[in-house]
Computed example of a mutant assay.
Amino acid sequence: MDDLRYMGNTLVIAPHADDEILGCGGTLSRLAAAGCPTTVAIVTKGTAPQFSEKLVSQIYAETKAAHHLVGVGKTIYLDLPAAALDTVPAAQLNAALAGLMQDVAPETVFVPFVGDIHMDHQLTFLAALVASRPRHLGAPRRIYAYETLSETNWYAPGITPAFIPNVFVDISKTLETKLDAFRCFASQVREFPDERSIEAIRALAIMRGASMYLGAAEAYMLVRQID
């Protein structure tokens, strides 16, 4: 399995903690093994009364443990309101993502898919694309949209965009690390046949891999590539 050094300095933008593991956990582990600098930015934070202080603290701890397992170099929290990004002025969200891009200066960016059912995902995608516009030589060279179980697959056929991957990353050797990282999110793990079960995450990885004659894979849609 070739390394992923060509991706260079990599940023994964996650609307919520755990999206980055669901979408890119195996890829992040490979990037760490290749020696690529990796940053994960968690866009939102749960706030009362919808999210208790205890749950928010638990998710921070879960995120730290998961990121340690896959080898994330740096975790950034933007602390915008979870499940309420539609209440944040577009200019404020765009500015937060623009500041993130400036600080990290990534060569490769992974973003949530615009067709995800969760509005936070859609708005994060749009703001990330605004922030990564190629208007200077330091703009990201590669942008990929990842899939998130229980969000990406609930699109309305013929009405919302469909996730049709055209980039596949072999995670045959890092699938178990990805699954262990998701197990760290005890607040999010569910029993099978729920989509957020370990069995469902494994099944998706195996299916994506088999479609490319691989043992397991994470699938992406290429948004932009500059060679």
Rank of each mutant, 00 (worst) to 15 (best):
D103Y: 03
A181F: 02
N94V: 10
A48W: 01
D19S: 07
G23W: 05
S132L: 04
Y220F: 15
E20V: 09
V104M: 09
G46N: 01
A210E: 00
D79C: 12
Q188N: 04
M221F: 00
R202G: 03
L100K: 11
T44Q: 02
T174G: 07
V189L: 02
K54H: 10
L100V: 08
Q122W: 08
N166A: 03
V56W: 02
Q122P: 00
N153C: 05
A83Y: 05
F51Y: 12
N153V: 02
G209Q: 00
A145F: 09
S52L: 03
T27A: 15
M119F: 10
C36S: 10
M221H: 01
H16C: 07
G8C: 02
E62M: 14
Y155F: 10
I13G: 05
T152Q: 07
D103T: 14
N166Q: 02
G99P: 12
A65V: 13
R224V: 01
A91W: 04
A210F: 06
L31E: 11
Y213P: 00
K173A: 09
A127W: 12
R183Q: 12
I201C: 00
V109G: 04
K173L: 05
D86A: 05
I21Y: 08
L4M: 13
G71R: 13
V12M: 06
T39G: 03
A98G: 14
V189K: 06
A96Y: 10
G25Q: 04
S132E: 03
L100S: 09
Y60E: 14
D170N: 09
F192G: 03
F110N: 10
M212K: 10
Q58N: 07
A145E: 12
Y220K: 06
H136N: 15
D86I: 00
P81H: 08
T148V: 15
T160V: 10
I226E: 15
V189H: 05
D2N: 11
E147V: 07
G209W: 02
G46M: 05
A210P: 00
N153Q: 14
T27W: 10
K45S: 11
